[in-house]
Design a protein around this nucleic acid. Structure first.
Lengths: 342, 342
DNA sequence: TTTGACATCCAAAACGTTTCGGATTATACT
DNA sequence: AGTATAATCCGAAACGTTTTGGATGTCAAA
């Protein structure tokens, strides 16, 4: 069926070895034969068998991405953009991208990582949504398997990552609200196990404290990162005897859910209550009102994560394996000063 | 390094052949030796080398998904959900999923399909966002390469697909608006090259005609499927001397963009102007106001597409290779009767 | 004429698996 | 005793590539 080295060898009248080396451009095959080989290869439409090459070279030229998916109705704008980033970068270097989808912290997820670690499946992994005491990272470190994470974590091994400076981002929002005159600010926190959520929550609390503002515990509620979750828990904030004048959500999706519920209550977002999100997903510019948020260059993060991984796989440890991107505040109509008559 | 059949063979004291056949469960190896082999394999932590097996079996146990991505800031809630669907289904059957990202109709995309067709890369492909005169499908058909499409197209080859009945869906919305009393309905069409857009547009026009309503050309504008696009082109509808009382967008993303711009103009969506989308992405329940739309079981479509592909790869042509899913209308607050004083 | 250097080529092994076609031994049947 | 039958096993080839370690021949320098 497919054209192999043997076919070319027969046609040209040399050995398979010579064909292989000729095509690879080694200089121990005469220029003339090399040209002849190339010519016949083109004419026959030769394309090397990747599987065979992989078996021989003991590498797959493939990157793995194990996507943590929650439930069947899984939709996160983060992933398509990130995927496009790593996909394009990988393709540029001639790498394929193998994608698995598994529920976080599930047995199947663990098994997928185990499979990667024991070799031959992919050359390296991209890890996203780092978790507290991240078992995945512990495993990869322990086996010295090449990987790069999007996000830091608190395990005691040193590993390469690209991350946004969530603390800095949150500081920007909180300060923005405080500068506008807000004193009572509610926070919709991401689930505690996710590292990026922790950074955001901690930074929220510390920035408040740095401004001599206290944050009573009932001003912090926890959502599940979805619109639905945001909508549900913002209720608790709205029902407080002394309602906050501003609400910050740990991500845009929850902020959008909150927007929805707040407006259903008849409150005007931006006037009666300020709201901010985090991530600047494309949608956040088109909500009603448009959402104040922190911009994250997800596509670029994907590219850089992937590029770093490829460097590592090829034995070129990056000069700086810890990239921390400083985010920027995007002010839109969902934020405004507190109502004076409050 | 890794444990191979040879290691087990040496340990047990039989040939590599016997180990291979023993593990595979052939009955020409004694039960006793089989158990012994299995035991040693477990103890040594044997896992077959997939690359070697692939080379031998001449199949990759891998499915390909070539994602059409537009521009760097690419974010489409459709893809993460679809990906989760095919990913989970594929994993259930022991298949890996190889994902490439390429701009539609680009040389790199063509090259990716060419690579698939010439074999050895993946066992089958999943094609999405079918296009008019879809070159990809022509190629795959011509080479008899296993694939399943999400979406139909107008080429003259017969091929397996899963699709939503876009025409039926659009009929539901249009009829819904007409029943509410609307007569002048604007339409934000998807780009013309995409088949699903054509079905939706055609059904919009024909349903209008079936109700003896005319659709002057300036009531149909064309967007690029993004919020930004929806926001931009809805302006043209709003600027018309005789403004429509309802607007239907070809997908939810554009509807959301339209929502934004309409409200910026000071119009109340649902009262002053009715709006509907198409897809029922999770966000559409949380816009302000929530969006009337057509529900698409994307996750399920992903699963079914994948399942069908695996059947085909394994030489079991599905009884019904043309699945058409009937969508349902989801009425939310963005739709309402036309203003009486119009 | 020998020596060495160089240019060009290739056979064979290797990567780890599966499969083909027997080979060997024991068992049962004439 | 001889012969068929079944139960076990295995050597070798195959999948398509790359690499190792020469082999062969040519030419120039000593």
């Amino acid at each position: 069926m497919a054209v192999t080295l043997k076919d070319i060898a027969r046609e040209v009248g040399v050995s398979v070895t010579t064909v292989s080396r000729g095509l690879a451009g080694y200089d121990d095959v005469a220029a003339e034969t090399r040209e002849r080989i190339q010519e016949v290869a083109d004419q026959l439409g030769y394309h090397p068998n990747l599987t065979a090459r992989r078996l021989q070279k003991q590498r797959t030229d493939t990157l793995g991405f194990i996507m943590p998916t929650f439930g069947p109705r899984f939709s996160d704008p983060f992933f398509s953009e990130f995927l496009a980033g790593i996909g394009n970068e990988a393709a540029g270097y001639g790498y394929d991208l193998l994608v698995s989808t598994h529920a976080p912290d599930s047995d199947r997820e663990r098994e997928a990582y185990a499979r990667a670690v024991r070799g031959g499946w992919v050359d390296g992994l991209i890890v996203v949504r780092t978790r507290e005491n991240d078992e995945r990272i512990e495993t990869l470190c322990a086996h010295e398997f090449p990987f790069v994470a999007f996000g830091r974590t608190d395990c005691n091994c040193d590993f390469p990552y690209v991350d946004e400076d969530g603390a800095a981002g949150m500081r920007l929002i909180v300060q923005h609200f405080i500068d506008l005159g807000h004193r009572r600010i509610g926070f919709i926190a991401p689930p505690p196990g996710l590292m990026f959520g922790r950074y955001r929550l901690r930074s929220f609390l510390s920035t408040m404290a740095a401004n001599n503002l206290e944050t009573p515990p009932d001003l912090v509620v926890e959502g599940d990162m979805t619109q639905r979750g945001g909508a549900e828990v913002v209720e608790r904030l709205l029902n407080l005897a002394e309602r906050p004048t501003a609400v910050i959500a740990g991500n845009d999706l929850m902020a959008i859910g909150a927007l929805n519920r707040i407006q259903q209550r008849g409150l005007r977002v931006g006037q009666d209550l300020a709201v901010a999100g985090f991530d600047d997903i494309p949608l956040s510019a088109y909500t009603t009102p448009p959402l104040t948020t922190i911009h994250q260059p997800i596509y670029d993060i994907g590219r850089r994560t992937c590029a770093m991984l490829i460097e590592i796989i090829n034995g070129r440890p990056p000069a700086n394996p810890h990239i921390l991107l400083t985010p920027e505040l995007v002010v839109r109509e969902s934020s405004g000063p507190p109502r004076t008559t409050n």
